[in-house]
Amino acid sequence: MSTEFEIRGLKATIEGKEILKGIDLKIQGGEIHAIMGPNGTGKSTLASALMGHPKYEVTDGEVTLNGEDVLEMEVDERARAGLFLAMQYPSEITGVTNADFLRSAINARRGEGNEISLIKFIRLMEGKMKELEMDPEFMHRYLNEGFSGGEKKRNEILQMMMLEPKLVILDEIDSGLDIDALKIVAAGVNAMRSEERGFLVITHYQRLLNYIKPDFVHVMMQGRIVKSGGPELAERLEAEGYDWVKEELGIVDETVQQA
């Protein structure tokens, strides 16, 4: 079944302050959508609100994944329904090894009585780590603890590859990655491209989009998508910055801070 993900009129607040001011976006399986935009315009907030982070309160709008109401679901239910967010700042968790964590996550979606065997799991994890050129020792390291910025990002992609979600949100997956790592991570993402899977890629740089080719590019300002286009839009933003967009739309302060 091909995936269909739809956001309609999504508004969200944090500590009473409205950050998302009505987002509309439709992602079909097989599509890659990129979101770009200056700092502080609500990109990570959109990602977090979709995933259900408790700090963000959704005040209006609808989100559906294959017809199911996402906003009704608890965070873990969203994940099991197929949502995945590679976070801009993943948490570090002492004492929980990467392997134990991922096995719990896989078994949570497989359900009781249908757990993956240990040997199968280890083979799967080793295989994916190899694709991402990760040192096997990362299997037994505590989750993200002491990982470098780039290692954390690679570990997020490892999780994506093992959990096989339907809708993947990548929040600045390219930050902290050196150029070789960027290629490896992009190859991992591209290998996951399929009719069943949609992608929402948040980035500041065209560079990532050279490797992960988007079908659509959206610009976010003031907590809204203010402009959408094809890959050429990202190229123009890279070359010229955001001033021309602001001028075109009559925006002075692009952050969500304005009244």
Binding site: M51, G52, H53, P54, E74, V75, D76, R78, A79, R80, F84, L85, M87, P90, S91, I93, V96, D100, F101, L102, S104, A105, A108, R109, Q159, L163
Partner: peptide
Amino acid sequence: HYLMSRGISRKEAERL
């Protein structure tokens, strides 16, 4: 939240 965002229930996340 991080653990739950991977599909792990709240109870199991806290236990871990």
